[in-house]
């Protein structure tokens, strides 16, 4: 492949991935509202379009038309940069997540990932930890005590859970012997990591909830105590930036869980299905999205089931439970490798 071909193919991939992401995020908001309604025996949005299917567009349009208010005591530059960082982090992370095996289109062998980097997992970890800057900057620059409290909580929470997240990933890396997401997925062809290392799976999922600031770990935005936390002083499209970033982070977290623990695009017993060529690829890509959808549903489902932790409980859980458990998981995986090799 010549350099122009690589650039063109990469651009097409970027457009497709970004498009899918934006639509997923938009409809995630819609499904969040729908599932919230169902959990409370309500119907949910059903006025805009068939069954409320155009609701996300109405929401975005409303946010666009709102007045953009910057508080008097805010640091204007940082205040404007914070949502940009949040969005940047949220959308660049998708680059390394593979959604299917290599496919052959018009004679080109194309991998279904924007950037097939050999340290993809590290890249995701690095970028998601940048996300904490968005929230702390937003909290600090707003010049409001509620925002500041939200920002401080967020940084403490994210740093605490990043550790157990990193150690849970350690177990996966030991098995895959690579940081490349495609290799990690391929290492799970026969047996998913969620089955091999259930403790690591649980600690990773819990840490992912904490990293994405989702309930039961949504202390940075705790509505009853902090009025909305770090985004109290944001309005209009700046607020929409945080809103989109939060949901985009949820999509990444689900995609990462699927890639690292649920076998990525691999179907269970895919050899025995007897599918061939293109159909197998289609089934595999579909299975990736089905798994991701299930994880997203789980995220929303948990939100409407479990109440928020208190701050000290959050820290206790992070340092005294999740951290040791993720270490135990590494020992467990190491023992498995020792026994079976």
């Amino acid at each position: 492949m010549s350099i122009t071909e690589i650039i063109i193919i990469s651009l097409i991939k970027i457009v497709i991935v970004l498009g899918i992401t934006l639509i997923t995020v938009a409809y995630l908001v819609y499904f969040e509202r729908k599932i919230a309604a169902w959990a409370q025996n309500r119907i949910g949005p059903n006025r805009v379009g068939w069954q409320g299917i155009l609701q996300p567009f109405a929401d975005v349009f409303k946010l666009l038309l709102k007045e953009d208010i910057v508080p008097e005591r805010a640091n204007r530059i940082v205040h404007a940069i914070a949502p940009m960082i949040a969005l940047f982090v949220a959308f660049t992370t998708y680059a390394v997540i593979p959604i299917g095996p290599n496919v052959n289109i018009f004679g080109y062998d194309i991998s279904l990932v924007v950037a097939d980097v050999n340290m993809g997992v590290l890249y995701v970890l690095a970028l998601t930890s940048l996300g904490v800057y968005a929230i702390t900057f937003a909290g600090w620059s707003s010049g409001s005590k509620y925002s500041l409290l939200g920002g401080i909580r967020s940084s403490a929470q994210m740093i605490s859970y990043e550790i157990s997240m990193g150690f849970s990933i350690g177990g996966v890396l030991l098995l895959a012997e690579s940081l490349r997401p495609i290799d990690i997925v391929n290492s799970q062809t026969n047996l998913w990591n969620a089955i091999v290392q259930p403790i690591g799976f649980i600690t990773f999922v819990v840490s992912a909830f904490a990293e994405t600031n989702r309930l039961p770990f949504d202390l940075p935005e705790a509505e009853p105590e902090l009025v909305g936390g770090f985004h109290t002083e944001y309005s209009s499209m700046k607020f929409a930036g945080f809103f989109l970033a939060e949901y985009a982070n949820m999509v990444i977290a689900s995609a990462m869980i699927v890639t690292l623990y649920l076998g990525g695009w691999h179907l269970p017993f895919e050899q025995s299905l007897g599918l061939s060529g293109i159909w197998l690829t289609v089934a595999q890509i579909a299975s990736f999205f089905v798994k991701m959808g299930a994880m997203l549903f789980f995220f929303i489902w948990v939100r409407w089931s479990i109440p928020r932790f208190r701050y000290d409980q959050l820290m206790n859980l992070g340092w005294k439970v999740m951290f040791p458990l993720s270490l135990i998981n590494i020992i467990w995986v190491a023992a498995i490798i020792m026994i079976f090799n």
Binding site: I35, W38, I43, V302, W304, S305
Partner: peptide
Amino acid sequence: LALTFKNMVRPKFT
């Protein structure tokens, strides 16, 4: 979670 899921499939009050 089971409780909330049970409620999701119950008839709606709206």
